[in-house]
Nucleic acid binder design. Structure first.
Lengths: 333, 333
DNA sequence: ATGAAAGCGCTAACAT
DNA sequence: ATGTTAGCGCTTTCAT
């Protein structure tokens, strides 16, 4: 293994100078720098990140903590973050939170903690990992959080979606998803969007009943399929359906197709997120496209600041990014 | 920051003993181990991975090197690998190779090299990163490779797909994708599958013309859309279409829908990969489902062996995993 | 079964 | 502008 010492010897300087040259510090003569660079190249030198990290206390790595990256939503989001971090010369470590807790809900494996900061989505508060690092929570929505938060525009976006259905002539709007009121919280965005949908319906003077206006299914593509079957089989009275995620909406489209239902003629459908898949579905999916890139930028910049200036006092900040209503076939009528 | 020393002091032992206790070595009294564990817990000790890694020369991390994880194919694959690695107590670092080369094609950022091994997909040979680590190439297909390879069953799977179209009555089979012969190589699997399709067609006694049997489009969902338009607009004579990736197939379905073409009545379509999306498309997509989990297992075990036994001589190995033909609506006729 | 000492490869602080 | 020294936190000899 080629170490800095080897490079230094080859270049006829000490390790310190070699280190400085490699990092491009201006205190080194251009000529010396050249010699060092040439020596490194010649020997095929690769820096030992562990050593650097041990010495400097920084690893240049951020952990993206998520239950999984399967599905377009997570992979699209994860890619945005990777791109944003790479821009800064940092690297992204993806961890599946599902492997990190034991049966008692305690952190199981903590080795990922060597990263400089954590970006977590749908994580529970108070975990040791989050506490001991600069962290940003995505889609958290907790009030008075001690973490920085970066959220999708769930309220504004949902209202825009409902209003869009209304503008397209829908007067009986249904919402697909799990229950509203006290129910448990498998992702806070779900609850927020469901509530916002209710409010907007009421504001538009539409009837909204917690029992009957909701198609209660799981928050997944399969849940969407089930909702589609229900709409047809139980002859639900909705002429417009809001899905608080594109996955749900894409499943719904499939479920309705199973029953020969025509979208948007028989019922209009709109999703939320703006994953690329909605561009290719049959019919194509109208949706609220969230500014994923903006989320990545915001989160990374929040994190970077805390990492680079650990001495500054930290005031938790909440960023809500923008959205764009994308009108496609599923509401074209 | 709580270090091993602090824990040792709290437990009334030395750092050496504390280290041994924490690692569960049998040379430590159960009683001492308990004391150390309790001290660690009490102080909220978290091991410094950089230090451990510097000392042992292992980081417990594998890099998954890919151009991007967008799209179901990559994210599904990446998740399988993350799961497999987590089973072994290792962690997965995802790197986008697109950020790792400068304009001259040289490695740009090499810091990710701190991982113990690399799993690369669609990577070019000979990069420093790959050379200096235990690495496994996915979907490589190069003969006489010096790397371990883990491949999808491109030949067998493709032939099964073509035969399936044939069994469903198709006698004019078209293949969607970029050109066969000398063309450049944006992913070796593409070329292999195209060739296998040609061979199988010929074996079945079907006409296959390099010019006319191929719908030349880019290897992407948009390429699939374009192929669909072409089929309709140019009245191509195919009654069955093979897409060497599900992305292509899903795009094709959309492109055909744009022109009001009915699948499978007007033309049958089959894909390759077996991503979950095909289960929800309209129509649902017949496909060759690759054993992703098997790929992950094989690659990780190959890698693990080399990492844990660096002294063993290395004979590059090629693993080809299995597949399953999944018959869905797009070929149901 | 436990401890003492050395050192992994790097960089920050302090000379010169 | 460059060198010397020390030490980041851990594990691995080698003693005891």
């Amino acid at each position: 293994m080629v170490t800095l010492k080897d490079v230094a010897k080859e270049a006829g300087v000490t390790a310190t100078t070699a280190s400085r040259a490699l990092r491009g510090l201006s205190s080194v003569t251009p000529k010396t720098t050249q010699k060092v660079l040439a020596a490194a190249e010649k020997l095929g030198y690769r820096m030992n990140i562990s050593a650097q990290s041990l010495r400097t206390g920084k690893s240049g790595t951020i952990t993206f903590l998520t239950a999984g990256i399967d599905g377009s939503y997570f992979s699209t989001l994860a890619m945005r973050f990777a791109a944003e971090l790479n821009k800064q010369g940092r690297h992204m470590l993806i961890e599946s939170s599902r492997y990190l807790v034991d049966d008692h809900g305690n952190d199981q494996d903590m080795s990922y903690l060597f990263s400089d900061g954590i970006i977590a989505i749908n994580a529970k508060h108070g975990s040791k990992a989050l506490e001991s690092h600069p962290s940003v929570m995505l889609e958290d929505y907790a009030m008075n959080s001690t973490y920085d938060q970066v959220n999708a525009p769930s309220v504004a976006g949902t209202r825009a979606a409902i209003r869009h259905l209304y503008d397209r002539g829908c007067r009986h709007i249904g919402v697909v998803g799990a229950g509203i009121p006290p129910e448990s919280n498998p992702g806070a965005s779900q609850e927020v969007r469901l509530l916002a949908a209710k409010h907007e319906c009421q504001e538009l003077g539409l009837e909204f009943d917690d029992e009957r206006s909701l198609i209660r299914v799981s928050w997944s593509r399969d849940g969407g399929v089930e909702a589609g079957h229900k709409w047809a089989d139980e002859q639900l009275p909705f002429d417009g359906l809001f899905c608080p995620s594109d996955g749900l909406a894409l499943g719904l489209l499939r479920g309705l197709a199973d029953r020969g239902v025509h979208v948007p003629q028989d019922v209009a459908v709109i999703g939320f997120d703006g994953v690329p898949d909605g561009e290719y579905s049959v019919p194509t999916l109208s949706t609220i496209a969230v500014d994923f890139a903006g989320m990545a930028q915001a989160a990374v910049s929040l994190l970077t600041r805390r990492i680079d200036h650990p001495e500054e006092e930290h005031y938790p900040q909440t960023v809500t990014v923008g959205y764009k209503l994308i009108e496609r076939e599923s509401t074209a009528r």
